[in-house]
């Protein structure tokens, strides 16, 4: 078995990030968009941790904790907004959010 190098991790993180980005751009359900956003952040986290191992310092790992904390705050606010959208417009897809345009 060949060793798993930093570039393997980076390729994987880029793939996860790309899957997340694809989901955000193509999906209409806001809950799935939220999941895709989390996927993007987690792809980034993997890159940080891999680079942290590569450079032999802990900055990347510490950064990951901040990202996780911020992602949790973002998710809490996002779910609250989605619930409010559901109350006002009776649905959680982006089709319910098309009143503002021009």
């Amino acid at each position: 078995m060949a060793d798993i190098t930093t570039s393997h991790y980076i390729v994987l993180s880029a793939l996860i990030f790309a899957v997340g980005l694809f989901g955000v751009v193509t999906r209409k359900n806001t809950v799935i968009i939220l999941m895709s956003l989390e996927l993007m952040l987690n792809g980034t986290n993997l890159a940080f941790v891999a680079f942290s191992r590569h450079w032999g310092n802990l900055q990347g790992q510490v950064f990951t904790f901040f990202v996780i904390a911020v992602a949790a705050a973002e998710a809490a606010v996002a779910l609250a907004i989605i619930i409010a959208l559901n109350r006002v417009r009776k649905g959680v897809t982006l089709d319910e959010a098309t009143e503002l345009k021009g």
């Binding site: 955000v24 806001t30 968009i33 907004i81 989605i82 409010a84 959208l85 319910e96 959010a97 503002l100």
Partner: peptide, 9 residues
């Protein structure tokens, strides 16, 4: 709410 959602995404 719609504005909030757009800003959020």
């Amino acid at each position: 709410i719609e504005a909030g959602l757009k800003l959020l995404v």
